[in-house]
Design a protein around this nucleic acid. Structure first.
Lengths: 198, 198
DNA sequence: TCGAAGTTCGAACGATCGTTCAACGACCGT
DNA sequence: ACGGTCGTTGAACGATCGTTCGAACTTCGA
């Protein structure tokens, strides 16, 4: 269904439209729920015909996978870049959490869908790549927390428990953050880090 | 559909069976997802015929509401009882979080469904009571955190942000806790409280 | 400007959904 | 022990689901 390989201009247009559809689908799914949104309903909100979706996606579930990829790929890429920059473990953690919170807030709809459909992500065969990306990101954070604990500077009760707590609070941000709220992204992220490292 | 009023013995049997169905449905929904589980599938796993469910519930969504009630009612009741017992704010917080984590772990399936179906809970008209119970519980925790902040003992960066963080980490526990894990419920709860109050 | 390739449409498909209901065995109160 | 209610069954319903596909429209390359 995508254009034949070799035609760069067409490929780019195809990819841009596809990403646009994914973005819109994330917004609709976050509000109405993935399963409770029928393909005709989704198509109507996106302003295209129902059948037209299948030009860009093999099926409804592949669209869901694309939403999760659009969420996880840049997050993991940015996290790896930050860790390569050097600095103390605590400095790196602070930078990582800032980037992470910014990402959660920016991709709030994606996050809500991602959390909502955890049962699909955890079980399906074709979800292995999404699961692995999530795992890799969590390991990055865990490594950082272990370095901080080993430095002895902070009094983390338990690195694994702290990791779970941090995952919980940051990801939960998607459920209450509002664009014109009292706290900006940096204040939220720093507040989280202060809780964790004291 | 329930037995006629006045027959206490029948009413009790009916209520017990109903609660049993809710419990089983929570387990199935947590694994397969609410929407992705058809009524015939659910009925088969519960060991009854599809039509039989409608003896206890007006429809599939009322069953979902019952799951959330079975989760929130005892949690709120116990929280209110703990707050009535007296003690310093920090002591009360520690007791409340212990009870809360125990509840999340005990009703892990309910929690997973509750979080999974957030979009339904937030929007539907008949979900107002569930929303209000959730709100009331959150206000209880918020009041406790404000008392701690006012006492000046701990260095909470922001009571509202701390509340969101605590909600996130405790509720997230349902997604990683395993019965024979390294940490027991009390250790988890105390770890969370230590992060929050320092 | 012309043929080809890419994109969109919308009617139609079989499958499956949530729900209803008449009927039957089990158990209650008397 | 008997009449009535309760609990359960499973077949059947209309509605709606995700998906397909051939035709119409648009854009690209030359």
């Amino acid at each position: 269904m995508p254009p034949k390989p070799g035609r760069a201009a067409l490929q780019e247009r195809y990819d841009r439209r596809q990403a646009e559809v994914v973005l819109g689908a994330a917004r609709v799914f976050a509000r109405r729920g993935y399963d409770q949104t029928s393909v005709p309903q989704l198509a109507e909100e996106l302003g295209i015909a129902a059948g037209g979706l299948y030009h860009y996606f093999g099926g409804k579930e592949q669209l869901l996978i694309a939403i999760c990829d659009q969420l996880m790929d840049p997050l993991l890429t940015e996290a790896q870049a930050l860790l390569a920059e050097g600095g103390t473990a605590e400095e790196q953690l602070r930078a990582l959490v800032r980037s992470w919170v910014a990402h959660v807030v920016e991709h709030r709809d994606h996050m809500l869908v991602f959390q909502q459909e955890r049962h699909v992500i955890d079980h399906g065969r074709q979800w292995a790549q999404v699961r692995e990306r999530r795992k890799r990101f969590e390991r990055l954070v865990e490594g950082l927390l272990r370095r901080i604990a080993d430095d002895g500077a902070a009094r983390l009760p338990d690195a694994r428990l702290t990791l779970s707590a941090l995952l919980g609070m940051v990801n939960h941000t998607a459920q209450w953050y509002r664009p014109r709220g009292r706290l900006d992204v940096a204040a939220i992220a720093d507040g989280y880090v202060d809780l964790v490292v004291g």
